[in-house]
Amino acid sequence: MRIGNSLTNYSYSVPGGGSSSSIAIVEWPLVYLGNLIYGQEICQQGIVCCHVVNVHSLKLQWVCSLCSCIFKQGRCTRSSEPCPSAVGVFHANTKIIVEDGTAEAWVRCKDEQVADLLQLSSAEWEGLQQHVVQQGSVYFQYQGRSGHELHEENTGDLLMQYLGTVCASPIVCRSIQLAFKVDSRNKRMLGQTETFQMRMLKCGDHQYSTKMAPTLSLTCLDIKEVDYRMLCHLGNDRLIQ
């Protein structure tokens, strides 16, 4: 099955490796997720126009700059022996599911990429970090299709309620332009149809047997809002087929 033609490379601006203000211009191919799974696109990095289906999990935490223990309310919480550090470092990690009409993929995002995903301004992102430092670490996990279900112990936590509402909102579950790299554990499975597994699906009173492709796992390199010129290019590519 061929989903579409190989698409042309696309110039992409990403943060450079030097100062925070440096910008690097790279050339990455514009691809379909389905072509990656079936081995019809051979690339380790690329760009896909996709829709965020849901935020599966979100972890926000402050850690000690010296020992990496949880940093809470201005101090390290290491219990084995006192830690002299008075500096904490904030980390954000999330795992999302995206689809582009040809396949789904799990995508891992971290730090500033999470702020871009949640569409938080610099002030909002800093404000969220200050709320997290009071607890040291918070963890949100998607509990259902509505996205509003929280574990019982978190229903009275205003921060968790806020995260649940934001993660399920159309502001987050939207179309994005995702720059990615393929996770190393996926590389040997891509294009290998023998790794596909038979699954039984039930719809009403009927059961269907189908082959399911291995889960595509990607690491986010950058998130941008959709460039609609790129969508026009994708639309033209599909019409040609």
Rank of each mutant, 00 (worst) to 15 (best):
Q45W: 01
H56Q: 12
E41T: 09
C64I: 04
R75E: 06
G39W: 04
S11L: 13
L33H: 03
C43F: 08
V26G: 01
A103C: 11
S11H: 09
K72T: 06
S80Y: 07
L30G: 07
A24W: 00
W28C: 05
Q45H: 10
V55H: 03
E126S: 13
H56M: 11
K95F: 06
C109K: 03
V98M: 04
Q44R: 13
C109R: 04
A24K: 08
A105Y: 04
E126H: 14
C50Y: 00
V87P: 01
S22L: 00
E27S: 15
S68M: 15
W106A: 13
Y12M: 08
S80R: 11
I70L: 06
I25Q: 14
S121G: 15
C69R: 10
L66S: 14
W106S: 14
G17W: 00
I97R: 11
V14A: 08
K110N: 11
T8M: 07
V53E: 12
A92C: 13
V63D: 07
Q113D: 08
H91W: 09
Q113L: 13
L7G: 02
I23S: 08
C67Q: 01
Q61A: 08
A92S: 14
C49V: 15
K59P: 03
I23F: 01
L60V: 08
P84G: 09
L117Y: 06
A123F: 11
S13W: 00
G16P: 04
Q44H: 12
C64W: 01
E27M: 14
T102K: 05
E112P: 10
T8G: 03
N35R: 11
S122Y: 04
W62Q: 07
E41R: 01
N9W: 07
C83Y: 04
E27H: 12
R78Y: 11
Q40L: 15
L30I: 05
V89E: 15
K110E: 13
P29D: 09
E126V: 15
G39R: 03
P82G: 02
Q113E: 14
S20Q: 09
S57L: 09
E41L: 10
W62K: 07
C64Q: 01
L36T: 04
V53C: 07
I70P: 00
Q44S: 14
V31F: 06
C49Y: 03
V98H: 04
H51N: 14
G101H: 07
C50W: 04
S80W: 08
A86Q: 13
E99T: 08
E112T: 11
C64K: 01
G34F: 02
T8N: 05
L7Q: 01
R108M: 14
C64V: 02
Y12Q: 03
L66K: 13
A86S: 09
A92H: 03
L33K: 02
I25Y: 02
C49N: 15
L30Q: 05
I96Q: 05
V26H: 06
D100G: 10
K59G: 08
Q73S: 12
L60C: 12
Y32A: 12
A105N: 02
S21A: 12
N9R: 10
